[in-house]
């Protein structure tokens, strides 16, 4: 009676064989493998760059969202009575009573701190151009309340008030910008990831051509398709993983370098872009994305090859 041929094909030592072979094949075809790894690294670097910018903007929004401000700028020539009236108005409204008065001199000092390079220009002026203001802390819930626009309108119409600004609109704009950054990043990164997957597919195809004779021998001595395909699939995944690690490394290097070069002192303009590097979950997702692209690429060529042989 012949033995059952449907025995499970799960050799315990095949996984180590797959990994060993995959590393060896990457080394043998190092030039083409380098192209595949570079493609993956480049696409993940671009995608990661967008994610990093969006992530920092998101964090900035979260910070500001927690304590949004309404800035009530007063006339440069506002009389003390008018200032007291505005203060009284704010104090009488429970939603607006957490306030802080910024004098003209304080406003000038702040400007000099934020924009170090422009401080000399300001010093050359005859007169302090900055108005005094009230900074009113409000929560997002208050800003979105139905009575808030009326309160702002009343405030604007008071004598001695030059302008009323609140950053909620600005935050909304920033949110839309984050969405755009995310969308652009995902689109560009996605397109490049697809291109990288196809590059890996071609690299694996070349490797398979190199090993064509060997694959035939393997088939003849009883190797299953799983054993034959395994090292190629692992090769693709490894290339993707290496590309992912390279991308994260480059991204971190660029981030640290940019932080040093572009964010001196407390420059408001840049500081919100450098709150921090990507959280580990997003780093892991980037590397996993590289591995996925590698796996898809190698699977495409392995599948094609098997179909050819069928």
């Amino acid at each position: 009676m012949p033995r059952d041929l449907r025995e499970p094909d799960t050799p315990s030592n095949t996984v180590s064989y797959f990994v060993r072979e995959a590393f060896r094949r990457i080394w043998v075809t190092k030039r083409t493998s380098f192209v595949a790894v570079a493609m993956i690294a480049m696409s993940l670097f671009i995608l990661g760059g967008f994610v990093l910018v969006a992530d920092n903007m998101e964090r900035a929004v979260e910070r500001w969202q927690g304590k949004s401000h309404v800035n009530v700028f007063l006339d440069i020539e506002a009389a003390p009575d008018q200032i007291r009236a505005v203060d009284g108005f704010l104090a009488s409204h429970p939603d607006l009573h957490t306030r802080h008065f910024v004098t003209r001199a304080q406003a000038l000092e702040r400007f000099k701190t934020y924009f170090v390079n422009l401080s000399q220009v300001v010093d050359q002026l005859d007169e302090n151009p900055f108005p005094a203001s009230f900074e009113v802390e409000v929560t997002p819930r208050i800003i979105q309340s139905p009575g808030f626009p009326a309160e702002m309108k009343a405030l604007r119409s008071m004598s001695g008030v030059e302008q009323v600004q609140f950053d909620w609109e600005w935050l909304n704009r920033l949110r839309r910008l984050i969405d755009i950054v995310n969308a652009v990043g995902l689109t560009a990164g996605g397109i490049l990831a697809v291109a990288a997957a196809f590059t890996i597919a071609n690299v694996i195809r070349l490797t398979m051509l190199t090993y064509r004779e060997e694959i035939e021998i393997m088939r003849l001595v009883g190797a299953t398709e799983r054993i034959i395909r395994g090292p190629f699939l692992i090769e693709g995944i490894l290339q993707g993983a290496i590309g992912g690690f390279v991308a994260v490394g480059l991204l971190f290097g660029t981030f640290v370098l940019a932080q040093r070069l572009l964010a001196p002192s407390n420059s408001l303009l840049w500081s919100f872009l450098f709150i921090g590097f990507l959280p580990w979950q997003k780093i892991a997702a980037l590397i996993a994305g590289g591995m996925l692209a590698g796996w898809i690429g190698s699977w495409l060529s392995v599948r094609e090859r098997v179909t050819e042989e069928a």
């Binding site: 041929l5 094909d9 021998i217 001595v221 190797a223």
Partner: peptide, 30 residues
């Protein structure tokens, strides 16, 4: 070895080949 090769499924082929020792004319060594 009791197996009809015409009816053999493709995924059974490797296991069947493991029962046969083949020495090829061109050796087929890796």
């Amino acid at each position: 070895n009791g197996r009809n090769l015409n009816a053999m499924k493709r995924n059974h082929l490797p296991f069947f080949r493991r029962e046969i020792g083949m020495v090829f004319q061109d050796f087929k060594l890796i």
